[in-house]
Design a protein around this nucleic acid. Structure first.
Lengths: 194, 194
DNA sequence: TCAGTCCTGGACCGATCGGTCCGTAACCGC
DNA sequence: GCGGTTACGGACCGATCGGTCCAGGACTGA
């Protein structure tokens, strides 16, 4: 009948777009640039995705899934030790924020690039950040924090701070203080007695 | 000889540009939109500024100056009490991050929009953030912190976290926990004895 | 009042944006 | 091998980007 559709096209596009968006920001990357670096024509891209907004949203969904997979891997060794898992999660963020070529958390960055609440990219980004806080609160509760929500908020502060300063001030900046600050917060909220 | 140049043109442009950049982000605002909202022609804008990059840099310089003026005003009541000034500075950030229509710290936002280290806007933004950390370290030293740099880093984390989460999660999110976390950090680092 | 000067608004420029569409050729069933 | 079908690359679209430039007129000095 006809030639067969090449497999893995969507994944290839997503991989290239992910790298470009991460390194340069979404608004700074044009669709033309994406297809050129993928080595495909535009029609392929627009068959796989409805438009740039859809591509960006798909990228964020994939990044979200990859993040939680990394979290699961980092938390597994501390199974049964929620306080240790809390610290391991912060350490995972610290490692990301201190890695070479880090340009900020893609979810915070993208939510700041698209301010319209109706924009799908913003919705995906904010949903991820809410999930992040939710996970922290769950772990905080399991760790026996007196006020799980308060501990989760404090850890979100540390995490957000590491992302922001890691991108702006480099890996030798405040990022180094993050894990210690988180440990102090966890200890303070989970102190047994009274 | 000729008609005189209308006074205050530069200031009017900067005020409009400041509002647009703050609300929408820099890349989302076109020069056409700026001149339309100012009600002037493009030639005026390009006589006052060398181009968009220059306009953005000038906006950041003005925002930087305005910020330090606000800091001075907030710290004045606590003259002679560096620890209190540290807390007042954090409270100033918390108030900004919780204010309605807050869309993130313009310096963090702009540094994430322009990743090229040679870009004047990025340079202005990063310079502001370094000044911010420097001010915190100076105050931390005056407050008798055992390790002023460490306290400054921890407070930068709280500040960056409040900016990030204030924009993404709203004023009722982790921002509320920021001042308490900062107070705890200050007390821990400035504990007298041992 | 008139001539001269230069401020001013907006038409205009090439480049690039996100997105559409068509000619070509690769591949299939027969 | 051949005809039909469909995947594909890239030419092309209008809109908008940052930036330039010019015709017109408002103001000044005499």
């Amino acid at each position: 009948m006809a030639r067969r559709q090449a497999p893995g096209t969507r994944e290839r596009i997503l991989r290239v777009a992910s790298r470009l968006f991460q390194e340069n920001g979404v608004r700074a990357v044009g669709m033309q640039q994406v297809v050129e670096e993928v080595g495909l024509g535009k029609s392929l891209l627009y068959r796989e995705f409805d438009g740039k907004d859809d591509l960006v949203a798909a990228w964020l969904r994939e990044s979200d899934a990859a993040w939680w997979a990394a979290v699961d891997a980092a938390l597994a060794p501390h199974d049964g030790d929620p306080a240790g898992q809390l610290l391991a999660l912060v350490e995972l963020v610290a490692a990301a924020a201190a890695s070479p070529g880090f340009h900020g958390c893609v979810f915070y960055n993208t939510s700041s690039e698209f301010r319209d609440d109706d924009h799908p990219a913003r919705q995906e980004a904010l949903a991820h950040l809410r999930r992040m806080r939710g996970r922290l609160e769950t772990l905080a509760g399991a760790a026996g924090a007196a006020h799980p929500g308060a501990l989760a908020d404090e850890l979100m502060l540390v995490v957000g701070g590491m992302y922001a300063t890691g991108a702006a001030l480099g890996p030798d900046g405040p990022v180094r203080a993050g894990v210690a600050a988180a440990g102090s917060a966890i200890a303070r909220h989970c102190a047994t007695g009274h």
